[in-house]
Amino acid sequence: MTRLFHVSDLHFGRADEAALDWFAGLVRAEKPDAVVCTGDLTMRARSAEYAAASAWLKALDVPVTIEPGNHDLPMYNLLARFTRPYGRFERVEKAIEREMDLPGVWVVPLKTTRRFQWRNWKHGAVSRSQLDGALARLKAKPAGHVALIACHHPLVARKASGSDQTAGGIAALPVLAAAGATAVLSGHTHDPFDLPWETPGGTIRLVGAGTLSERVRASPPSFNELIVEDGALSVRVRTLE
């Protein structure tokens, strides 16, 4: 059995300190095999926010993989956004494990953030090159492993159409399913969900994590506990009451 904690939207700068302490305490007590963080480490991509997020993630003392969120790109420093949008994120990423091969589990990153697009910059997109990179990693999946795609934006928005839809997300799902992906892990919505999505390539699960920040929506602070055993994935939402 392999157990992962899937957490998202920490938003250092607007983090909920009680929620962070609760999560870190559970990691210390229960020692999951790894933590998957699907983006928005920070609120405004400031150096101090990244430093706090990095120190907190390293102190968990378990393997961690992270994906960037839209809040992790500079919003007000346009020069940095267009020339080195992931500069501060990459400094944190170098100190954290990224590629993740665990017993029975293969975690594949898929970047969905964009430095620029002709709509609200907070929305996600899946480019052909990013999808090809994920497919190449899926091909390297060891036999018998459950493959989990980790990205920030849900590949299908809560509404099937609209301006907040992740560009290229729906089209990517049958390709990922046919390539052997079991589920797509994401954040961004600040509310947890676990939905099957039927595609011509097979069924793929869409699993979203909540938030550990003050910016809660319909749900209190939470994270997902993922258990992979005998090739099957189970998901449990754990909520700060």
Rank of each mutant, 00 (worst) to 15 (best):
M1V: 13
V7K: 15
D9L: 07
G13L: 05
R14Q: 00
E17F: 00
A19R: 02
D21P: 02
F23D: 01
V27Q: 05
V27L: 09
R28S: 15
K31H: 04
P32L: 13
T38C: 12
T38D: 02
L41T: 03
R46K: 12
A48D: 11
A53Y: 02
L57Y: 05
T65A: 11
E90Q: 12
A95P: 03
I96H: 05
E97V: 14
L102H: 10
L102S: 09
V107N: 06
L110C: 13
T112F: 10
R114V: 13
Q117A: 15
H123L: 11
L131W: 10
L138H: 01
K141E: 08
H152F: 01
K159Y: 12
S161H: 05
G168S: 13
I170L: 11
A172G: 04
A172P: 02
P174C: 04
P174V: 07
G180S: 08
S186N: 11
H188E: 10
T189M: 11
H190L: 03
F193G: 04
F193M: 15
P196T: 09
P200W: 13
G208M: 05
A209I: 11
R215N: 14
R217A: 07
A218C: 12
P220L: 15
P221T: 03
E225V: 14
S234G: 10
V237R: 14
L240K: 14
